[in-house]
Design a protein around this nucleic acid. Structure first.
Length: 815
RNA sequence: GCCGGGGUGGCGGAACUGGUAUACGCGACGGACUCAAAAUCCGUUGCCCGCAAGGGCUUGUGGGUUCGAAUCCCACCCCCGGCACCA
């Protein structure tokens, strides 16, 4: 008997499949399925154990869909631009282009060793000019539509590395690379107007088959709130405040402006000037980290001015304090210390009036200590004609009344900000803009795209707020596409998330020359049916890609508004010690070593068996050995059938009935598991089925007659362990690949057992089980059989008062 | 603080729309094979009492609904993730 040798089987089939083009995408799909992984960032460390978890899942789904008659698009590519690639290149002293190409090579090779059924002809690479040409084209489209604009903005800045940092590279207020505390730097930057789509981005989440946590994160991130803008008159003009609780207006006892608010200067009276200026200056200098620190004490200064509360004509003091953010709402608030913890804290410190206006009956007359949680509803008091109204009604009524006087209007607030995409870094898509003194910023015309990233020697970040491209004179100097006069190119590059915003639109026709995407091909394949990746992209890639899809749909380039119909997240693979895998902890498992020791099939199987797909799981050396043992058992069982010779036939009928049941049951269970993304139970189903097959076969010993059942089993196994399944399939004398087969049919009549085990409960406790023939399970028969049982008699005195019988399931006798 | 997800054997985890809790795997124990070990195979394995037959208990805690609850409802405790002075 040959022994199981994945090291020789696996490369052999990988080569044969590739040569024969077994997994090429069908040209004219009828019953399409677009099954997509979030494409990897090809880091220098190569594949880590987390990658194959998602990739194996989509591979299983792809195979399963093909088996069930679907035409499948299952591509792979590289998110190759970006800061980490550049940082790694700098560290190694190798040009980012060269380093990235090398990393891509390695990743591709590693993925191929895992035997995935990707259509490698469709590979895309975001750092390829043929790709980023179209990233730039989309940018110019958005620019023309007013969705890409230039504005002054504050950007994270690392003083030690002398470079700007992407938001995602600021971790707990510190630079990801060197650990120093980041500050902010004022720079003129490019933004994408994602806020224009805030409402749709929230509202259409409801239609998506996405994990609830991801939807919740997007909702939180966009942070929509319903409120009102209310105007407070002052001697120097109106101050507009944003509030979500206009019902508390009678409790507004002071106002607060953010230090950056435009009216601060105007409102400050002579005798307060010195103090206010000092405060505003300090606030400016202080880092955001310090300003938003967890338990920071409230600070602030009185401006000397008063504003008039529109509901009661009361004069209330106007303060400046940094607990009010300039960037949210109007940068000014009406403070209601009785019903807002922050205002309450501030009022206590500066001895300002605290006046409750909402409460339940118990709250009436209680002292100033009472602070209602912000969300709580109650009944109005201290509020003139609104007294006695429930607060939610008062909220609408007060705004409506003030609206009539033109001093308030309903308004929605959002936490979402426009997406800052400028990066003063080399390794990214150049922003395709030409700055002309006469004409202003002009988009580079399509015929001149791509604006190629010049091959410069000095690509180190400069630290002066401009990208290293600014030093490439030949790149910078150009002419204005509008007036033909001398002009300069934009030297910043785009955030990498722009590159990954549309790659899924490129796969249907990745070599398209005359456009970013092929309308016909898009119609055939999009939207993505199954999208799989980590939850860490919840509010980055997944939000940005939705935004671009909508923006492109509005320009009539796309016929759909949501790119990913169904999304699933894979959990992280932790180290065996339960911590994150990291080089410094020395607990990293290298996929290459795993493949070498056990083979790709075992690796794939284990990554799915390790636990529920969406939950984190710790690596487990014993666990992977278990999977290896299982595949070995499959191998040995297959070999035994291959070597089997005919024997006396009398007994095989019984065994065959058992084999049919085993395979049909397994098919049913595994089908359901795959469709529900429960791959861990799919693998247990495969294990269970092998146990059943072995048990049935043991009745007579292996016989050639049993091969067809095992062949169906191999089809079930093949999405998980393709190499082993193919090898045994061909040994069983098949010319064609196992992947040309159909998914096994389920014989429902075979699944049902001949006898059924009915648990019998007395007063809800199981006292015995009855083995009864599956037909003729009437309540009468079962009850009769149950009452004859000794154990039932013992626990049931006399006749049962009540009998509950669930057909074929259970009998409960209540005494 | 707000939002989301979870608490099931020694461990990872199973359990369809309320119907035998602990599938599958790991580990452990006993046995076979072996000079021996590894590998492999067979058996046992939720906990407690009992020689046994048998009995009792058990899905974070406490209550409730139900003939019957891991599953539904209420209250609470703990763990993980995201956001956070967003008015």
């Amino acid at each position: 008997m040959k022994r199981y040798d994945p090291q020789s089987i696996e490369p052999k089939w990988q080569e044969i499949w590739e040569k024969a083009g077994v997994f090429k995408t069908p040209a004219a799909p009828k019953n399409k399925q677009y099954v997509l992984d979030m494409f990897p960032y090809p880091s220098g460390d190569g594949l880590h154990t987390g990658h194959p978890r998602g990739y194996t899942a989509t591979d299983v789904v792809s195979h399963y869909r093909r088996y069930t008659g679907h035409d499948v698009l299952h591509p792979m590519g590289w998110d190759a631009f970006g800061l980490p690639a550049e940082n790694a290149a700098i560290k190694k002293g190798v040009h980012p282009a060269e380093n990235t190409a090398k990393n891509v090579e390695r990743f591709r090779e590693q993925l191929k060793r895992l035997g995935y059924s990707y259509d490698w002809d469709r590979e895309v690479n975001t750092s390829d000019p043929d790709y980023y040409k179209w990233t730039q084209w989309i940018f110019t489209e958005l620019f023309k539509a007013g969705l890409a604009y230039r504005g002054a903005g504050q950007q994270w800045w690392c003083p030690k590395d002398k470079t700007v940092l992407a938001n995602e590279q600021v971790i707990d207020g510190r630079c990801e690379r060197c650990g120093s505390e980041v500050t902010k730097k004022e720079l003129t930057q490019w933004y994408f107007k994602i806020t224009e789509y805030a409402d749709e981005l929230i509202d259409s989440l409801d239609e998506l088959d996405w994990p609830e946590p991801i939807k919740a994160m997007q909702r939180n991130w966009i942070g929509r709130s319903e409120g009102a803008e209310v105007m407070f008159e002052s001697d120097t003009g109106p101050i507009t405040a944003y509030t979500t609780r206009p019902d508390t207006l009678f409790g507004a006892t002071y106002m607060v402006l953010a230090p950056e608010h435009g009216l601060v200067g105007k409102l400050t009276t002579k005798d307060q000037v010195a103090e206010v200026n000092r405060y505003v200056e300090t606030a400016k200098r202080e880092s955001d980290i310090a300003r938003t620190a967890e338990d920071r004490e409230k600070t602030g200064v009185f401006t000397g001015s008063y504003a008039t509360n529109p509901v009661n004509g009361e004069k209330i003091p106007v303060w400046v304090a940094d607990y009010v953010l300039a960037t949210y709402g109007t940068g000014a608030i009406m403070a209601v210390p009785a019903h807002d913890v922050r205002d309450h804290e501030f009022a206590k410190k500066f001895k300002l009036e605290i006046r409750p206006v909402i409460g339940g009956p118990a709250a009436e007359g209680s002292d100033e200590e009472m602070v209602l949680p912000h969300s709580e509803e109650g009944v109005m008091f201290n509020s003139d004609k609104y007294d006695g109204l429930p607060s939610d009604q008062a909220r609408e009524k007060i705004v409506a009344d003030l609206e009539k006087k033109n001093v308030a209007k309903p308004k929605r607030g959002y936490k979402l900000r426009d997406w800052l995409i400028s990066r003063q870094r080399y390794w990214g898509t150049p922003i395709p803009i030409i700055h002309c003194d006469n004409c202003g910023p002009q988009p580079v015309p399509e015929k001149d795209l791509p604006v190629e990233l010049p091959d410069v020697k000095d690509y180190l970040p400069t630290g002066d707020g401009r990208s290293p491209l600014a030093k490439a004179t030949g790149f910078v100097e150009t002419t204005c596409p509008k007036c033909g006069g001398p002009a300069e190119r934009e030297t910043d590059t785009m955030d990498t998330f722009a590159d990954s915003n549309w790659y899924f639109l490129r796969y249907p026709n990745p070599r398209q020359k005359d456009g970013a995407f092929d309308k016909e091909a898009l119609k055939q394949w999009l939207p993505v049916d199954t999208y799989v990746g980590g939850a860490e992209h919840a509010v980055l890639h997944l939000l940005y890609a939705r935004f671009w899809t909508k923006a492109l749909a509005d320009r009539k380039y796309l016929g759909f508004r949501e790119p990913f119909k169904s999304l699933r997240n894979q959990g992280l693979i932790m180290a065996e010690d339960g911590r994150k895998m990291s080089k410094s902890l020395g607990n990293v498992v290298n996929p290459d070593d795993v493949i070498e020791a056990f083979g790709a099939d075992t690796f794939r199987l284990f990554e799915l068996f390790i636990g529920p797909f969406n939950q984190d799981a710790a690596w487990d050396t014993r666990g992977i050995e278990g999977c290896y043992r299982f595949l070995k058992r499959v191998w040995v069982f297959g070999q035994s059938l291959l070597e089997a010779t005919d024997g006396p036939d009398q007994e095989t009928d019984i065994a065959e009935a058992g084999l049919e049941r085993a395979v049909s049951k397994a098919t049913k269970r595994i089908t359901a598991s795959i469709e529900q993304f429960r791959f861990n139970t799919a693998v247990s189903g495969l294990m269970e089925a092998l146990n059943d097959l072995q048990e049935q076969t043991a009745k007579t010993g292996p016989r050639p007659a049993y091969r067809p059942y095992f062949e169906r089993y191999l089809v079930l196994l093949s999405p998980f362990a393709p190499h082993l399944a193919e090898e045994l399939w061909r040994e069983l004398d098949h010319e064609e690949s196992i992947f040309t087969q159909g998914w096994p049919a389920i014989d429902e009549s075979a699944v049902a057992d001949d006898t059924v085990t009915i648990p019998v409960q007395v007063n809800g406790k199981v006292r015995t089980t009855l083995e009864l023939p599956a037909d003729g399970l009437s309540e009468e028969t079962v009850t009769k059989a149950a009452l004859a049982d000794a154990s039932v008699k013992k626990h049931l005195s006399g006749k049962p008062k009540k009998v509950i019988y669930v057909e074929g399931e259970l009998l409960n006798l209540v005494g």
